[in-house]
Structure formats: C-alpha cells, structure tokens
Design a protein around this nucleic acid. Structure first.
Length: 905
RNA sequence: ACAGGCUUAGCUCAGUUGGUAGAGCAAUACCCUUACAAGGUAUGGGUCGGGGGUUCAAGUCCCUCAGCCUGUACCA
C-alpha cells in the first residue's frame, strides 16, 4: 500500500515498502506537478456555476529568470488560487510574459555584440527576427521555473504581450485615445537616454544625490564694461543658452533687464530677462537659460518666447550648434569648455554642490533633457476616474497606506511619453504621407486619410512596454471582443504585486481599465515588499547576494521555500530572507513526513471507512485526547480561514506550523501511542479513525502553502480522494459534523494535563533528575473537579512525565519537596515532587525561594490593582473575578511556601 | 521639503476593538525514549527608542524629540 521511496542518499535508503525517514522533495515535486497538469486541475472554466476568482500574473520579462521577488509574488498568488480552488471557486490564474522592450532588446544587442554585430548594421527587420529567435529559445525558461515553484496557473491561457490578441487591443486603445484627443504627437522636452538613444518616461528616470561642481562664469554685458556672474553646474549647455535671467525684484540687476549679454566663447548675443523663477539668494542671482536642455529653463523659455537651441545629437554628442565643440560628448564638452573659460579668464570660481541628477534607471547614464518629437498620452485628463475608484474604496489597497501613495502620484501626474525609439515592441499604428499628414488606424491604411496619398510610411517608434501592460487585465481575455472569459473573470479578484510598480503598472491599469472596460481591472491590490538578504541588503546580481530560488528548491524543496516566504510575509513590508530559516521549514516538512510515517504505521490494520471524510466514530469510544485534537482542529480551521480571508498569510502559516508541530506531533501523537500500539478495541479503532481524519484535514489545510508534500502524503492516507488539489478546504462550516465531536471540556482537561506534565518535567530539568530515573509525584488540585481530571489522566501523566507513582490529594507537608504551581484561569494544581535523596537542602531552599518570589510579586500586583477603587468600579466583571481568584490562589500559595521554608530552616 | 513607514528577547519579527509581553531561530543543560538528532525535554533572556499626556489600566490612543528606511518633489 505504501510506495517505496528510494532516496538518492543510500544512507537514508528506506527498506522496501516503507517511507524513507527523510522527506526527499526531489522524488516528489516534478512527478506531482506533471500529474496535476496532465489531469487539468489548473484549468478554469469560462462558463461555470461556481463563483469566479481570478488573478492575472504580473508578467515577468520573457527573457528573465525567476528570482526571489518572483518566488514571493507567485507564492502569494498560488496560495490564494489554491485556497479558492479548494473553496469551490472557479479559480483562474492567468500567466504571461512581457516582451520588456528595452530589457530584451539590450540583452539581444549584447549577444550580437559578442559576434561583432550591431543592430543598426543588421537593420530593423533582421534584428527583430533575431529577438524573436531569442524569445523562442529562452521564453519558456521562466515558465519551467514557475512550475518548479508549484504555480498552478491555467497554462492554456498563457499570453505574451506581443501576441496577436494583445496587439489588436493595443492598436485599438491607441487609435481610440488618439481620436479622443488623449494621445497626441508633440515636440517637447523629454528625458532622453543617450545610451538607448530613446526617450524614456519620467518614471524611468532615477534621481540620485550627486556631488557636482557649481561653476561661476562671467558673461559680458553688451556695450558696457559690466559683466554678470552666472552660476551653473552644466557649463557645456551655455552653447544652447538663449537668455540669462534675474529676479524682477532684484535691485542689483534691474537696470540691466532688457539689455543683452555676449555668450562667452561664442560671442552670441542673448537678452537679459526677468523671471520670478530665479532665486535671488542662490549663487549670484543670475541664471543662464537653456530651454532645450533643462525642464525649468524650458518653462521660462515658453513664458518669454525664447528660441530653443538644441545642441545635442541623439547619442549625446554636441551637434552643429556647438561650433568648435561639435562631436564631443556632453561630459567631454564640459571639460573643454571649463578649460577654455579658464584660459579666457571667464571662470570666476568653482564650488562643490550636492544636487540630485537624473539617470536612466535602465542603463545608468545621465538622463538628458532633450527636445524631440514624441507621442504623449494626456494622463491628467484620464486620471480623475482612476482616483475616484480608490478614494471610494471600489479598489482597495492592502495595506491601505499605499492608497495614499497612489493618490499622491495621481494628483501630480503629467503627460506620459509613450513612444520609444526602439525596435522591439508594439510599433505605433501611425503613418505619414509625404506631405506629413498623420493617419492613425487599427488596420494598416492603404492611403492617407487627409490627402489620399498612397505613399505611407509607418512611424518608426514603438510604444513604451508599460502601454501594453496597462491593458493586461482585459487584453489577455480577448478584449475588445465580449468574450466569455471577460464576462466571467473581469474584473479580476486581486492584483498581487510589489510597491515598486504601483505607478508604472497598477495606476495605468486602473486608468486604462476604466477608460475601456468601464470597470475596474481588479477589486483589490495586495502590495508586498522586497526580498532582502539576511543582512537587509537588496538582493542584486551585481552585489552577488542574490539567492536563486531554483537552487533553493533543489536544495530544500519548493514547499519549504514557499512556507518560509509565507511565514515571514507581512503586507507591504520587506522581508529578510535567511537560509537558516529556510532550513527550519525544511525540517518542518520532514516533521510532517515523519508524523505521517508514524500514523500510517499505527494504522496498518485500519480499514478505510466507506464514507471517507464523513466517517465518524462512536462518540462514547473517543478518548479525551481525541476530543481535544478535534476541538483544536476546529480552532485551526477557524484561524486559517479568517487569516486567509484577511490576507494575513503569515498568521495562517504560523498557526498551521504550531498546530501540526505542537498540537498534533508533540501531544496528540504521543498521547495516542499506547492506544494504537495496544490491543484492538473499540477505543483503538476510534482513535485510528481520528488519526486518519485529522491527517486528512492537516493535508487539506496545508495544501495551499505546501502543495507538493501534502499531495504526496494525501495519496497514501487511508482517508483521501483522487486529488488533494481539488479537495474542499476545511472550514468550521463544511466540517461541522466532524468538529461536533470535539469539546471545549476536553480542551480544558487537556490543558490541565499538559501543564501538569510540563510542570513535572520542569522540576525534573531544574533539579537535574535524569530522564531515566522515574520519580514520585503528588498532585494537589484546587478543586474536586480538577482532581477528577487528574485521576482520569493519571496513566498519561505517568507515562509522559516518566513517573513511578502519582497521587492526587492535599498539598500536605511541603518540606523536602519541589513545588511547581500550575496556574490556569479556572483551575490550579500544585505539583509536588518529594526530594528525599534526590537533591540537597540548599538547592531546595533556593528553588522554593524562587517560586515564592514569583508568587509574592503576583500578590503584590494583583492586590494593588484590586485595592484601587477606580479599577474595581470600571473594570469588566470577568476581569475582576479572574483577578480575584488569581489573587486568592497566590496568597494561599505564598503562605504554603513560607511554611515550607520555615520547616527547612 | 513633503508623504509614508520602522524602532518590542542576541537575530528576524508577531502583537486585530487598550486588561500583569509572544513565536521562530540562536544560546545553555540533559537525553540516540521503537515517526522524526532535519529529533525530544527543559532553561535563561525584554524598564516594548527617549520624554510627556489621556485612562482605573498604554507595546497598543494623542503630542513631542531622536535614529533609521522608502517614496515623491526641487536644486543655477
């Protein structure tokens, strides 16, 4: 009945027919995944009577590899999907990959460079072909890695952002927005990456604090011997200056406004203007204005209708307007110009200055403000509705604080530069004729809309990758057609992603979703943090501290990795990943495995009941331990369900860890041993059934977190079904019948038994009695009821605490004894171990004193509280009662301990 | 500068309507007790960042200071 489980390590080789004493994930995972996939368990139905639950996966870069961030992101989603699938939902998780324009193009370009090829030499068509080849070769790698992690995606729905369906959606959206005037083409100052030779969006610019030099330059005023002192960090841009500006209220310069200065080195004449943008206090109070190379200067230029002189080529070299400096890179030009100014005596001084400089986040080069023709989307016009759905709670953020981040950005949102001068991506559906008329259409047009010319040329640019990403929740479901998938799964239930792409992606999806589907794309956004290394540093390839999740899976198993992530997850917060912790959860997997091994061994003669999970033993045959573990099963079902419904994944995971390890393994299995090893009886059969039913529920509860090991074990359980993955997730509602066998009284009784045993063990440990030495114990209960409980459980207590004898009765004489009180809200037991011959008097006194001090402190705190009139007046009755009971018990204990001390001295 | 977050045991972190501080790991001691040494049993360890306030009662609510982190904006 039990499959043999040959291990790679011969030391751990299991005998034929038994489970190995170590869980070996490698034996299980791939086989199990393939079995799930082959049986179609991941598939969702476009039409179903079940309620829908849908998630779209944030598509990873198609050429990328799975990193820890993905592992976290995916595990959260997979836990949700598996949980909902088991809870009777039509659960659909849609996977996909992103063409990732810049990233992928760069990777392929780098490869080509190794072969001494360049994309420009190859030409667009050939290059794009190469990228597709690359995609074919590596595009599925990440999908395979996702399978290793256990992602239960509906693979039939896998979508690539350049698929035909998505492309159609992209074109439609572009054309619609263009026709509504929400997309336009304009000549504007944009952020330019000279490495990519492309525009980039504001979001792709990373501002970094940089040590710069502030140069003070002398500009001569025309027709006088006066000159102006001008402070700048970018002297090279003086080649493009078209004015110098002062503050209108600055008396130092008011006489000069309207005159001209002569630009150093070139002698070009430019006006002195007045503008409130200038800060009188900064530098000399005079600013050079370079409208084509600075965003603020651009604004000043617009106000004063200044000419714009672009001095830079796309590759970052000075152009014709730079005269002698033509052909130099901006940085080189700066050096040369400073040198020349110095030689001409026009450099007054240099100061150091800390300022923030924008860099292209992708390539790390300085992002240059650059005047160029680009396509823009009018985001402020589109943002209103997207703001409202978050303000009104139609879309909720988890944790909520990110709603603020989102709204803040939405309030200052600016037009989005959507065109990129790349070749890999969605080509912009706009054509020009020789007269320069634009035709924007979904289908490639045959002639110009305006003049009918048939000589059309498509725009060379592609769209920002995030443009197609913004449509993802509906473009993947067949939009603009009104498909069954859309009707069923859109809006999606939840979006799970990192805070780093709230603006890039989340906000834009909400905007586009509302504009085109008239609905939100998802109802909830679950934001998680970053995975850091054990020292809190960001994991990165370049630092070399990035752990490869696939390697972790090879070494510890996917379940252990998943559990580690979930146990530590706290919404919106970064988490530090330590391999040590992973090892701990690997041990947990082993614990589960071995508990099963024990249980199966204890049930070799157990006949699987016909009614499976509904099979119930005769209540009269149940032991207190049985009733207790059933009670705890109800508690864990309640806790896990509530936690998962509230996205508190770590609460669910930690509760399960505790339940399985402490309740089931440490106590229940230990308590059950004499029963299951004993002679066949009605009670033994009942216990076997409880064991089988409990394990069945443990596997179902754990499955979303640790799918592989639970599916594997489930197959071997006496009570099971065809597949765990589609079994029902146990809740206090659907498991009511079974849980009705548990009882609170049993739990109370167990608590007394457990604590009593713990107290005896404590004494043993404290006075160093070897486990092999059996001892005698006297138990003094606080009431007859507690006494009955102790009597009933005497055999268990004796076995688990290794006692020779155990009597229940009055505390009696405490001389030459060790006393350990057990305190519960409604019960109390004094555990008394006679020490005759076991320990010396001094030790004994020390022990009693320690116990006494504790009790005295309790008395002090409690009586202080209870003598406070206001406390007695205001505190709830229950608290008052339990505090009073506690006080009484401790007072009694204090006097007894003092008594014993007296007798010893 | 603005916004948000963090500060609890040696480490990583829980702590959900305020009611004498919890977990995991690490440490220490003792145990190969027939599911598991990737194990068992027990132990030590915290004035909950500082100060103030509200309250009978504050890790929890309010104010304030400090340190760290993350966004966003600006910087000639």
């Amino acid at each position: 009945m039990i499959a043999s489980n040959a291990m790679a390590n011969p030391e751990n080789q299991a005998p034929e027919g038994a489970l190995s004493d170590r869980y070996n994930p490698a034996d299980v995972e791939t086989r199990t995944y393939q079995w799930w996939e082959k049986n179609g368990y991941f598939k969702a139905q476009d039409q179903s009577t079940k309620p829908p639950f849908s998630i779209i996966l944030p598509p990873p870069n198609v050429t990328g590899q799975l990193h820890m961030g993905h592992a976290l992101d995916h595990t959260i989603q997979d836990v949700l999907i598996r949980y909902k699938r088991m809870s009777g939902f039509n659960a659909m998780w849609l996977p996909g990959t992103d063409h990732a324009g810049i990233a992928t193009q760069s990777v392929v370009e780098r490869e080509l460079k190794k072969q001494n090829l360049s994309r420009r030499e190859m030409g667009r068509e050939k290059f794009v072909e190469k990228v597709w080849e690359w995609k074919k070769q590596y595009g599925d790698r990440i999908y395979e890695q996702m399978r290793r992690l256990g992602d239960s995606c509906d693979w039939d729905r896998a979508t690539f952002t350049l698929d035909d369906g998505v492309s159609k959606a992209v074109r439609k959206v572009f054309v619609d927005l263009y026709k509504k005037g929400l997309i336009y083409r304009g000549t504007r100052l944009v952020n330019w990456s000279t490495a990519l030779e492309s525009a980039i969006s504001d979001l792709e610019v990373e501002h970094k604090e940089t040590k710069s030099i502030l140069y003070y330059l002398r500009y001569a005023v025309e027709g006088s011997d006066q000159s102006l002192e001008i402070a700048t960090t970018r002297p090279e841009t003086l080649l493009g200056d078209t004015a110098v500006a002062v503050h209108p209220d600055d008396e130092r310069y008011s006489a000069l406004v309207g005159k001209n200065v002569l630009l150093p080195l070139t002698g070009r004449k430019i006006p002195i203007i007045a503008d409130t943008y200038v800060d009188k206090e900064f530098g000399s109070g005079v600013v050079k204005i370079t409208p084509a190379h600075d965003f603020n200067d651009y604004a000043v230029g617009q106000r004063h209708k200044l000419p714009m002189i672009n001095i830079m080529e796309k590759d970052g070299k000075i152009n014709d307007h730079g005269g002698a400096y033509k052909g130099l890179k901006m940085q080189e030009a700066r050096k040369r110009i400073v040198e020349d100014l110095k030689n001409a005596g026009l450099l007054i001084k240099e100061d150091s200055l800390k300022n923030s400089v924008g860099y292209d986040s992708r390539t790390g080069v300085v992002a240059e403000p650059f005047l160029s023709d680009q396509w823009f989307a009018k985001m402020p016009e589109l943002a209103g509705a997207a703001k409202r759905v978050v303000e009104t709670g139609t879309i909720r953020f988890e944790p909520e604080q990110y709603a603020k981040t989102y709204l803040h950005w939405m309030n200052i949102i600016e037009d989005w530069c959507i065109s990129r001068q790349l070749w890999w991506g969605h080509r912009i559906p706009a054509w020009t004729c020789e007269k320069g008329h634009y035709t924007v259409a979904e289908q490639d047009p045959a002639k110009c809309e305006t003049c009918g010319s048939t000589h059309l040329k498509q725009d060379e640019d592609v769209l920002d990758t995030w443009f197609s990403s913004a449509l993802w929740p509906f473009s993947t479901m067949g939009w603009p057609n009104d498909t069954e998938a859309l009707k069923t799964f859109h809006p999606t239930s939840v979006l799970v992603t990192g805070f780093d792409i709230i603006f890039f992606w989340v906000a834009r999806m909400i905007i586009m979703g509302l504009e085109f589907t008239k609905d939100v794309p998802f109802r909830k956004v679950y934001i998680h943090g970053l995975i850091r290394d054990s020292e809190g540093k960001k994991m990165s390839k370049s630092i070399g501290n990035a752990l490869d999740p696939v390697e972790m899976i090879d070494q510890y198993g996917a379940d252990a990795l998943r559990f580690t992530l979930m146990a530590q997850l706290s919404a919106g917060r970064d988490l530090k990943f330590s391999e040590q912790r992973l090892e701990g959860y690997r041990n947990f997997m082993n614990k589960i495995w071995n508990a099963t091994r024990f249980a199966l061994g204890a049930m070799t003669d157990f006949k699987a009941p016909a009614d499976g999970v509904n099979a119930k033993p005769n209540a009269a045959d149940l032991s207190n331990a049985d009733k207790w573990i059933i009670f705890e099963t109800g508690e864990i079902e309640r806790t896990v369900e509530r936690a998962l419904e509230e996205d508190r994944f770590s609460d669910a995971a930690n509760a399960l860890y505790h339940f399985v390890w402490n309740d089931v393994c440490d106590w229940y299995l230990e308590l059950v041993k004499p029963v299951v090893y004993g002679e066949p009886s009605a009670q033994r059969s009942a216990t076997q059934l409880v064991l089988a039913q409990t394990l069945n529920r443990v596997m179902r509860l754990l499955h979303p977190f640790t799918p592989f090991i639970t599916e594997e074990i489930y197959k071997k359980l006496p009570i099971n079904s065809a597949a765990l993955i589609i079994e029902s997730f146990p809740t206090t509602r659907n498991d009511k019948e079974w849980l009705s066998l548990g009882s609170k009284e049993a739990a109370f009784e167990m608590q007394i038994v457990k604590e009593t045993i713990a107290a005896i063990r404590n004494i043993r440990g404290e006075i160093q009695i070897k486990p092999s030495v059996a001892i005698n114990v006297r138990l003094a209960p606080s009431s007859a009821q507690v006494g009955d409980i102790l009597m009933r459980n005497q055999p268990q207590i004796m076995r688990l605490a290794r006692l020779d004898s155990c009597t229940v009765g009055d505390a009696g004489n405490l001389a030459k004894t060790a006393v350990q009180p057990v305190r519960l809200p409604d019960a109390s037991v004094d555990v008394i171990v006679p020490l005759e011959g076991l320990v010396d008097i001094a030790e004994e006194v020390k022990r009693i004193q320690k116990t006494l001090e504790k009790a005295q402190k309790d008395v002090q705190i409690l009586s202080g509280k209870l003598s406070n009139e206001n406390f007695v007046k205001n505190a709830p009755a229950e608290l008052l009662a339990s505090d009073r009971a506690l006080l009484a018990a401790n007072q009694e204990r204090v006097s007894r301990l003092q008594d014993s001390l007296k007798r010893l001295s």
